[in-house]
C-alpha cells in the first residue's frame, strides 16, 4: 500500500477522477458531505478508486458540553456509506453557548479539560462503534493555568479512551515556534504506538513587532524545516499513513500529488529492510 495520501477538495475532483494520481488514499471533511448532492456523487466515484479517511472539523470535542448527537448522526451516516479506514477530529473546541465558531480553538491543558475531552471521545467512539484519532492543534496563544504539556495531554487522552493520535507534524513545528519549545522533544515524547496518521501542510509567518507567529494556513508548500521534522518522525515511528492537507490557494492536482510523492519517498527510505523485501516480492 502507498501510505501517502491527499486531502480531496472540490476543484480537484474532475482532474482526480480522470488522471487517478498514484496517491495511497484520500481524506475529506465529512461536514462538506452532510445532506446530498453533487459533492457526494463525486466522493462516491472517488471512493471506488481510493481508500478514504473522514477528518471531522465540527465535533468540538473540547467543548464543555457533550458532543452533538445530530453531528454524530450525520458522520455515522457517512461512515456507513463510505466505509472510511479512519475517522478523526481535533484536540480543540469550537462551540460554546449558542455559537459554533468555524475554528479550532485552543484548550487549557488541565485535568478538568482532560476529563471533559475524554468523555466526548468516549461518546463519539460509542456512537460510531469504532475508535477515532484526535489531532494535535496549531495555536497562537497559551494559557497560564495549563498543568501538563501538549504531548502529555495527547498521550493521556489516548491512554484513557483507547483512541489513536493524528500527529500533525506541521502543527508541532508551528507550536514549537509559537510557544518556544523543542519540536523534536515533543515528537520523542509522543507514544508512537498511539499514532495512526500524520498530517503535513504549509504555514505562513506573521510579524508582531520583533516577534513572529507561524499561522497554520494550509495554503503553501510544506516548508523544508517541516520536511526535516517529518523525516525524523518517520525514522522514529515507521511507515505511518501520511496526508498532505491543502485548503486555500490550491495548487494544481499534480503539484499536490507531488507533495504526497515526496512523503512517500521518505517513508520508503525508512521502511525496515524486511518490509521492503516483502513489498518487492509482492510486486
Amino acid at each position: 500500500m502507498r501510505e501517502a495520501g491527499i486531502g480531496l477538495r472540490t476543484p480537484h475532483c474532475d482532474d482526480l477522477l480522470d488522471s487517478r494520481p498514484a496517491v495511497g488514499w484520500l481524506e475529506v471533511h465529512p461536514e462538506n458531505y452532510f445532506g446530498g448532492g453533487i459533492h457526494r456523487h463525486y466522493l462516491a466515484r472517488a471512493r471506488e478508486i481510493y481508500p478514504l479517511s473522514l477528518h471531522a472539523v465540527g465535533l468540538s470535542l473540547g467543548s464543555d458540553r457533550p458532543v452533538s448527537e445530530g453531528h454524530l448522526l450525520q458522520i455515522k451516516e457517512l461512515v456507513d456509506l463510505f466505509e472510511p479506514f479512519q475517522v478523526s477530529d481535533h484536540v480543540s473546541w469550537s462551540a460554546s453557548g449558542n455559537a459554533h465558531l468555524n475554528d479550532l480553538l485552543p484548550l487549557p491543558y488541565t485535568e478538568e479539560t482532560l476529563a471533559r475531552f475524554c468523555d466526548n471521545v468516549d461518546r463519539t467512539q460509542t456512537y460510531l462503534k469504532r475508535s477515532i484519532l484526535v489531532e494535535n492543534p496549531s495555536s497562537y496563544i497559551a494559557y497560564r493555568h495549563g498543568t501538563m504539556t501538549e504531548h502529555e495531554f495527547l498521550n493521556e487522552i489516548a491512554r484513557r479512551t483507547g483512541c489513536g493520535l493524528l500527529l500533525d507534524v506541521n502543527n508541532i513545528y508551528v507550536q514549537a515556534h509559537n510557544h518556544g519549545f523543542d519540536a523534536r522533544a515533543y515528537v520523542a515524547g509522543i507514544n508512537p504506538a498511539a499514532v495512526g496518521e500524520i498530517h503535513l501542510a504549509g504555514h505562513v509567518e506573521e510579524s508582531f513587532g520583533a516577534q513572529t507567529l507561524l499561522i497554520d494556513t494550509h495554503s503553501r508548500y510544506i516548508r523544508p524545516e517541516v520536511w526535516a521534522l517529518y523525516e525524523d518522525t518517520i525514522a522514529l515511528m515507521g511507515p505511518v499513513p501520511t496526508l498532505i492537507e491543502w485548503d486555500s490557494d490550491l495548487p494544481s492536482l499534480p503539484d499536490l500529488a507531488g507533495e504526497a510523492f515526496k512523503a512517500q519517498e521518505i517513508i520508503d527510505r525508512h521502511r525496515p529492510a524486511a518490509q521492503r523485501e516483502a513489498r518487492r516480492a509482492a510486486g
Partner: peptide, 16 residues
C-alpha cells in the same frame, strides 16, 4: 489567563 511572551494577548486573540 494567557501568556504574553512578547506578543500582546489582544493581538494573539485578534488572529483567531
Amino acid at each position: 489567563l494567557f501568556q504574553e511572551n512578547g506578543i500582546a494577548v489582544s493581538d494573539r486573540l485578534a488572529v483567531y
